[in-house]
Structures are given as structure tokens and as C-alpha cells.
């Protein structure tokens, strides 16, 4: 089996020692992605996902370590890599507003040397699959954010890359646009077995649903890397409880307790929904008495299926968002 991506002890630092900014965005990361795999990077904001993608896309050099993409070194042999990869970044509206959707896509397809007939065929096909055919001749500045992002995804796929990077492709999109993009990605991977996709996200459902394997990344380090089901199996000894309470002070700072792995709270109006990952169910009574000692009242309590987010809570002690 050949690797599409081999990352070997990579560190990336921003800013020199004397500089105002000095951040270690990646800290001694190693990972391999197989050809044909749909690989996910799951981690909170600032984890280092985009930094890693930029290195893989030949936009940024690693400070230390080596990276091979499709068998070539990203520092020295970027010219052999570029024709075979592409990248789509979410959360950032891009495109030449005064060109039409079709013109934008066409120009990029020509930069990749796609024969005109093939390019036209692919463009029409992809525009249709994303329901964008009726906007094909509209100026990009006149279409909606969701439509721009769909165009961007099409731009990534119109060059038929062997390896594609998708950096939070559904960030900030409405449910329908996200669903359309996700279902396209799922189908693409199924229909083109030799092609590799690297997807970053901080939506755990996305990682869970789409990815063959997921690396959980936080503060520039990989904490775990496996298939979603294996990751969840890590939690075999752990159990997940959802406790709904009235809001009370100190919700975000539970004292450490034996058997409590981690928790994540979200407030919903005047209530709070907290997810606890515990590896000893006995700790629940301690949690409940802590809540009532702080003036909180329990409204509902339930045991639930483990998700990837629970794996994250288990590993890091806090939630993804």
C-alpha cells in the first residue's frame, strides 16, 4: 500500500524568538494517509489543522520534519505535486466577483491544463450535481455565500485531483448547503476508489459520518488516530451521561473527581446541558450533589451513545466548541 501523505515529525513555529507572535502551531506531528482513504482531522479552533493543510498543499514550509505528498517532498518537489492536488478552504469567500461562475471555474481548469472539452463536460456535470446550473452565467458577486462555497468545492474537483484537501468545507453554511456538500463528498469517495481526501473539521458529525480514519488534534499534537468506531471503542470502559439542569454558577468549573474523565456544557436559554464522560458510574452521585450544592436543579438525566466528541472530551477533558 502506498501512502498518499506521509508526515514525519513535523513542527511548525510562527514568528522568531524575538517576535511579538510566537506560536507552535504544530508540535512534532507524524501521520500517514493511505491512497484512497478519506482521512479526517478533527480538532477545535487553533488546533493546527489549517497549518497542516497549508504545508501539505505546498503553501507553507514545515519548520522541522519532513513531508511527502504522493511520494514527493513538499519542500523540494512541489512542482511534481501541484498538478495532482487541489484545495478548498471553507469559511473564506473566494473568487473573482466580476467573472461569472463558469468563467471562474474555466480559468482554473485552464491553469491545470484540462483539455477544453473535458473541462466543459466536468463543469456542467458538477454544476448540475450542486444545483448551480442556473447560476452558471451569473457574476460571482451576485450569488449567495452557500452558492459561492459550492462553486469553490467545484473548483477543487473540476481538476480531478488525486488528492484533495478540504479545510472545514461546510463552515458557516446553512444546513442545506452543508448537506449537499457532504453527500457529494461521500459519493465522490465511493465512486473514485483510488483518490484520497483529507478533510478538516470541528464538526464531529462530519468526521464520524464521512471519514475512514480520524486524527484527533489539539494544540498542535495528535492525541489519537483511528477509525471512528475504534476511537469510540476506546470509551468502552467510559460511559456518557447527559444532564440537563437549571443554570447555576460554576457550571464550567467542576472540581476534579475520581472517575470523571471530562465534560462539556452548553447553555440553552436558562438551562444548561452538560455531557459527562465518566469511567466509573459511581461518580454520578458526586456530580449530582455538587450541582445541588451550587444551587442547580436537575431537570433530566440520561445515558447516551458515545460519539467522537466524547472521545475528544475523554482525551482532552473539555469539549470541541
Amino acid at each position: 500500500m502506498r501512502y498518499a501523505i506521509e508526515v514525519d515529525h513535523v513542527t511548525r513555529v510562527f514568528g522568531g524568538k524575538g517576535d511579538k507572535v510566537h506560536a507552535k502551531a504544530l508540535d512534532d506531528i507524524s501521520l500517514q494517509v493511505d491512497e484512497g482513504e478519506l482521512f479526517g482531522l478533527l480538532g477545535p479552533n487553533g488546533a493546527g489543522k489549517t497549518t497542516l493543510i497549508k504545508i501539505l498543499a505546498t503553501l507553507l514550509l514545515p519548520s522541522e520534519g519532513s513531508v511527502r505528498v504522493l511520494g514527493h517532498d513538499v519542500v523540494k518537489e512541489y512542482n511534481k505535486i501541484r498538478a495532482r492536488i487541489n484545495m478548498v478552504s471553507g469559511g473564506e469567500i473566494s473568487g473573482y466577483g466580476l467573472l461569472t461562475v463558469r468563467e471562474n471555474l474555466w480559468m482554473f481548469s485552464q491553469f491545470y491544463g484540462i483539455p477544453p472539452k473535458v473541462a466543459r463536460q466536468r463543469m456542467d456535470d458538477l454544476l448540475e450535481r450542486f444545483g448551480l446550473l442556473d447560476k452558471a452565467d451569473a457574476k460571482v458577486r451576485t450569488i449567495s455565500t452557500g452558492q459561492k462555497q459550492k462553486m469553490n468545492v467545484i473548483r477543487g474537483f473540476v481538476t480531478d485531483p488525486d488528492l484533495i484537501y478540504l479545510d472545514e468545507p461546510t463552515l458557516g453554511l446553512d444546513v442545506n448547503a452543508s448537506l449537499a456538500i457532504r453527500s457529494f463528498l461521500r459519493k465522490w469517495v465511493k465512486d473514485t476508489p483510488g483518490k484520497t481526501m483529507l478533510l478538516t473539521t470541528h464538526y464531529m458529525v462530519e468526521a464520524d459520518e464521512l471519514c475512514d480514519r480520524v486524527a484527533i488534534i489539539d494544540q498542535g499534537r495528535i492525541l489519537a488516530c483511528d477509525s471512528p468506531s475504534n476511537l469510540k471503542r476506546m470509551l468502552k470502559r467510559a460511559t456518557t451521561f447527559d444532564i440537563e439542569t437549571t443554570a447555576f454558577p460554576g457550571l464550567d468549573s467542576m472540581p476534579s473527581m475520581d472517575g470523571l474523565q471530562g465534560y462539556n456544557s452548553k447553555s440553552v436559554g436558562d438551562r444548561a446541558l452538560t455531557r459527562f464522560v465518566v469511567n466509573d458510574e459511581a461518580v454520578i452521585s458526586e456530580i449530582i450533589s455538587h450541582i445541588s450544592s451550587k444551587g442547580g436543579r436537575i431537570i433530566a438525566l440520561g445515558k447516551s451513545e458515545a460519539t467522537l466528541e466524547d472521545v475528544f472530551i475523554h482525551l482532552v477533558g473539555r469539549g470541541l466548541e
Binding site: 473566494s94 491553469f111 491544463g113
Partner: peptide
């Protein structure tokens, strides 16, 4: 403004 620099930069040109 257009946020296309990265896209053009990584193209094989």
C-alpha cells in the same frame, strides 16, 4: 479582496 492567491499559487503554473 478575492482570496484567490492561495488557489492560483498552488496551481501547476
Amino acid at each position: 479582496r478575492f482570496k484567490t492567491l492561495k488557489q492560483v499559487y498552488i496551481a501547476p503554473i
